[in-house]
Design a protein around this nucleic acid. Structure first.
Lengths: 225, 225
DNA sequence: TATGAATGTAAATTTAACGTAAAGTTAACC
DNA sequence: GGTTAACTTTACGTTAAATTTACATTCATA
């Protein structure tokens, strides 16, 4: 693994933890940056655009959750992988109750092997995200060639439908809200009517199969296979 | 996790090794599948989605490295743990030099006790590798997939019920007042009748279990497990 | 143990979200 | 510039979910 091109930002107010985790991640070959508070974290993140940020929840001044929120608002960092560090039993009302856009939670006390394997697993996503062909049972998606196969029969999808399919399959099982879908498929500024998404989902269901696309009423849609 | 629910795929072109390892892993309680070449391995892996794959590097036709690469491109298998079997002294510059997404390497000749302990160690990761899932005894909440499991049986909750459950479980044991619940689940402005919360609590009790939800008369509700 | 406010509950009702066919509107391509 | 496909909207149908209703039950307290 050419890990050295992968940049990780560690944020914690305890220097010991910072050093401990930093040492271990460097041993895995990653390039590691550190910050000891939210403000510093944001500034380093802006400068270095890391691939992954490990964020302690409990920090003085700006806490991890607020830091996460601010980072997610930075255009260049909206796709960075963020994982929280939380003490076991800590009040995670805000984390559980509101989606601040975290990708994982690691609970303290940290077991280094567990920590490393989770980080590795998270980062593996990064690499496979760009993989040319995704497979889900009888469904194959070739992003590069902009082609879809169902039971090895080629299906040609119009652009929007293809993008929508790519988004939903990019994280199989995850529920994508209508806002997320609009933002990712249509773009921030574009304003389209309420039924537009439905119609596109319907077309995908027609062409690819009813059962792949599940509606979560009041929330959004998800892809399942 | 009970070992019998853990699926291991062994891939080697030598039937003797296959049988020897299979026998020993089964003795540990794992469910074992075997394949004697890369092509077969991929087809079995697709069908069974094992948790771990042991892959001999040196195989005729498609070698282990190429097999690994192909497996990693299959979306459903991207998080499977893969460990290579390599002969000591074998030229594994390719393995070391290129990242094909392997998690471990075991060198032949295999000492069975070492082999088993390595496999066990790799599988211990399983418990903590995946997306944020909150667990309370027999109750699991997967926010991202908008799913609840009770005794590993999937329960589908409507939006409001799901949100209410998330709120109550966000701080297990804490009593949430009716005002808090209204504010968090329904939102500030929304005005609903007196019995609405009760009815939702009742539905959660029906679906998930009476005992989890405790009424504190005159105050509110809390989640306990 | 009688009382009343708070909560429980089945069923009816209402509402909001989604599904869909078809028509209208853009944009792309010859 | 006309044709076609893609995209969006419209206008309603459908349904699950949310809410209310109407009454029953509980439980702390007098």
């Amino acid at each position: 693994m050419n890990n050295s091109s992968i940049k990780i930002l560690l944020v914690d107010d305890e220097p010991d933890i910072l050093e401990f985790l930093s040492y271990n991640l460097k041993k895995e070959g990653y390039t590691v940056y550190t910050a000891s508070n939210g403000k510093e974290a944001i500034s380093v993140a802006k400068k270095e655009t890391p691939h992954l940020i490990v964020l302690d929840v409990m920090m003085p001044e700006i806490d991890g959750i607020e830091t996460c929120r601010e980072i997610r608002n930075i255009k260049a960092l909206k796709d960075v992988i963020i994982t929280f560090l939380t003490a076991r039993g800590e009040d995670y009302t805000q984390i559980a109750g509101f989606d601040v856009g975290a990708d994982d939670y690691i609970t303290k006390p940290i077991k280094i092997r567990v920590f490393l394997s989770r980080i590795n697993a998270l980062l593996r996503r990064l690499q496979s995200t760009n993989a040319p062909i995704f497979e889900f049972g009888n469904l194959k998606i070739d992003k590069e060639r902009h082609l879809v196969y169902s039971h090895n029969i080629e299906i040609i999808l119009p652009n929007k439908e293809f993008k929508l399919l790519c988004l939903l399959t990019s994280k199989s099982g995850k529920v994508f809200t209508r806002e997320e879908i609009l933002e990712q498929v249509w773009g921030d500024e574009v304003v389209v009517g309420d039924r537009t998404i439905d119609v596109h989902i319907r077309k995908l269901r027609e062409k690819i199969g009813e059962s792949y696309f599940k509606t979560i009423k009041g929330v959004g849609y998800k892809f399942e296979f």
